[in-house]
Write a protein that binds this DNA or RNA. Structure first.
Lengths: 195, 195
DNA sequence: TATGACATACCAACCAGTATGTATCTTATT
DNA sequence: AATAAGATACATACTGGTTGGTATGTCATA
């Protein structure tokens, strides 16, 4: 990826996080990085392509990093790994950070009903998160870490849902402690999955 | 409230649910209801006022209906009442319905970082939900329904957060069963709060 | 000399908001 | 009861700024 293209995506990502995709003013967004409209429409056919590239190239890899690693860690205790991830999420959640919300969640809320291509791209990300968590929980069952009656798929969905819900509710209060306390409750739920 | 004003708010509410507040084209929105721009700017000073009125007059009363009733039901089993509410939410959640998401959650995600007046109006709604749930749980403790070690405030936050998270994740898949399965997990969590 | 990588100027559509006009309804006065 | 005088409740036409996108030109490199 060229340097200019990367600058465009990063600037678009930042502004989309604040103002949404509809609120994104692409040329103004990149101007601060010294990139002009000419460059923008050289690398992207239209605004939609920018949004999709942000999802595919910035959001998806970032979000899937942990979940992919989770499935690869065969033999490990999945609950401990998820708990670690929650601790990590909590540690990076400042008031300023939660005020802008979860980039993926933001886009889901805004764009799912408006653009089917966006929706499918985002569904692919969440489905992958579910798949990874489900597999990890199943492996955890086989390895004696997870209670055998745990409904792996539903639990996977619930975990992701709790995280995103936590971001949502922290956002409206600009209050990271809301997120942290929610993660504590989710943590309790996770401990109940132990065998 | 006059009939015309009501028509404007209802039309704006519907379109805001799909396209967000930024995406709302107020005059086009009300045109289908036979109302013109003249009427719009007769009842509202600007677009912002429409959005705020939608929150205060349509969303807030609708959302608080259950939670207010919950606090009033002193002596009742709060967990049973909340479970009933989850069942109700599940029963009205069709694929088409979840595809549009929770109107409050949508607006929170979109507008919290962009408009402080919006944010405060929405925070008032969520705080009220927390307050009602917290009180109900505390009453439940006093009446022997709820485990005494239950952190009432945190649990209240978690419950709301799970519901909103459930809407979020169901939205991207246009799949009501995601919401239903999440409510099942939340239901399990609630049962664990019993004394 | 052809192509990639931009920069700049431009355009048509759109959109929030305004200006202006008018019919109806209310209220004070006779 | 009749009428004049606002006030209310809109409808229509217009405007100025914005926005996504395009057309065109330039410069460096292969």
């Amino acid at each position: 990826m060229t340097d200019t293209r990367e600058k465009i995506l990063k600037a678009a990502f930042q502004d989309m996080r604040r103002q949404g995709f509809q609120g994104l003013r692409a040329d103004k967004s990149i101007a601060a990085a010294g990139v002009t409209k000419g460059a923008l429409y050289h690398y992207f056919q239209n605004k939609e392509e920018i949004g999709l590239a942000v999802i595919e190239e910035l959001i998806a890899p970032d979000y899937l990093l942990f979940y992919e690693s989770l499935t690869r860690a065969t033999g490990a205790d999945p609950i401990a790994l998820i708990q670690e991830h929650l601790t990590f999420l909590t540690s990076v959640s400042t008031d300023e950070n939660v005020a802008l919300g979860c980039p993926l969640n933001n886009l889901i809320q805004e764009m799912s009903p408006l653009n089917e291509t966006f929706r499918q791209a985002m569904q692919r990300v969440t489905d992958r998160m579910y798949d990874c968590l489900e597999r990890a929980l199943e492996q955890g069952k086989a390895n004696g870490f997870v209670h055998l009656e745990t409904p792996a798929r539903q639990s996977a969905q619930f975990i992701v849902s709790c995280i995103e819900g936590g971001f949502s509710m922290a956002k409206v209060r600009r209050d990271a402690s809301i997120f942290k306390e929610n993660m504590e409750q989710l943590s309790n739920y996770l401990e109940n999955l132990r065998s």
